[in-house]
Design a protein around this nucleic acid. Structure first.
Lengths: 204, 204
DNA sequence: TAGATTGTTAATCGATTAACAATC
DNA sequence: TAGATTGTTAATCGATTAACAATC
């Protein structure tokens, strides 16, 4: 079952909508979903068929089954451990965000250099000194590292995470992370988003 | 000059790299940039030509001119005012992030309902009560609204912003915002990103 | 001159959209 | 039956990549 990146990006949108209408609708049609989410009908149908969902003509798709299938594909039912490096404003915001658990991601702890945050807990997560990172990675099974630290330290920290065995890096800095092919890196580029929005606004 | 969305998304990446190497290199080649940023050579050249940059064979592009052209296209040299709705963890993280100014975005103030934050300043930005939103929009020229509030209030707040004349909405909630064509909406979808990363990790 | 690099044209790839038959 | 909806096949669109001529 090979799902395209574009489809994958839309799945969380469907899932969120389905969760919200909850149990109020036993069935939902692609036509309806498309209208609500401002997407193409055919696109929605293709996306849903990509997750293996089957609908009945004239009725639509069974809401709960659909939700469950999307969750499976998105890995919501698996569990992955993560740590976060950089407990500044953004880092603490992410620590506070419990929504990641819905996608199977569990943030275990944070790391920082600032003595004002080291040793404290934020949203129930302990912040350790960055010096203990390598040791922590040895004794805990961490799949993912989240980078919310200053740009200047991004690459060296990523290198440590990779050496420590993480399988993926969620990069919130603006620095491009050089990495071996065996590690997945996903960069959240606020600047790019802002530029995109600027452009969209200019064209209206 | 019509620049594709894909190109536009890469421009901030080039810009960030160019800013970092600063004045240490008078010229830079597409070949070099491509290697550093793990992109295709031809892709980089096409992107650079899209912003109107011209390079010299065997030499490359003039670094400063290149930087300047990208900044122009990205609207870094214009100024847009924004307000932020929802001064929670994520909202305050964005208020603290001065980097937006580099892209011409000035956040004027924040709005919230929580009496613990209303009337206080964060990163030099005053937080007002959401009740004053409509009045504020009337008396200030606000181009962009940033939504960092709970999902449940996203749509109604977006409606108020649109009624108040904003031209764009930067949506950090997971809710799909219904909006007229005249308004640009850009949604940051953390869930989608996480799902994408999960998938990438699974395939390695 | 030789070689690195630019920049364009054509080929490929992937995703979206349109058209339509199948089904309940 | 009629009509709404599914789901597939073909057409279109846009972006990436490959090939190559032009240039300093």
């Amino acid at each position: 079952m090979n799902i395209s990146l574009s489809t994958l990006k839309r799945l969380p949108i469907y899932l969120h909508y389905l969760k919200n209408i909850a149990d109020s609708r036993r069935y939902i049609s692609a036509t309806f979903l498309a209208r609500e989410l401002a997407l193409g009908q055919v696109q929605v149908r293709k996306d849903l068929s990509a997750v293996g969902a089957g609908g009945k003509p004239k009725t639509g798709y069974e809401t709960n089954e659909l939700k469950s299938r999307i969750e499976s594909v998105l890995g919501c039912k698996s569990r992955a451990s993560a740590i976060l490096i950089g407990a500044g404003n953004l880092g603490r915001a992410l620590l506070a965000h419990n929504g990641f658990r819905d996608f199977g991601l569990y943030v275990l702890a944070g790391f920082d250099t600032d003595s004002r945050v080291v040793g404290k807990e934020f949203s129930g997560k302990m912040i350790y000194h960055i010096g203990g990172l390598e040791e922590y990675l040895k004794t805990n099974n961490v799949r993912l590292g989240i980078l919310t630290l200053p740009d200047a330290y991004a690459q060296e920290t990523a290198d440590k995470l990779i050496a420590g065995g993480v399988r993926g890096i969620w990069n919130f800095t603006n620095t491009h992370i050089k990495h071996p092919q065996s590690v997945a890196v996903q960069s959240e580029n606020m600047a790019a988003s802002l530029a995109l929005l600027n452009m969209k606004m200019a064209n209206k």
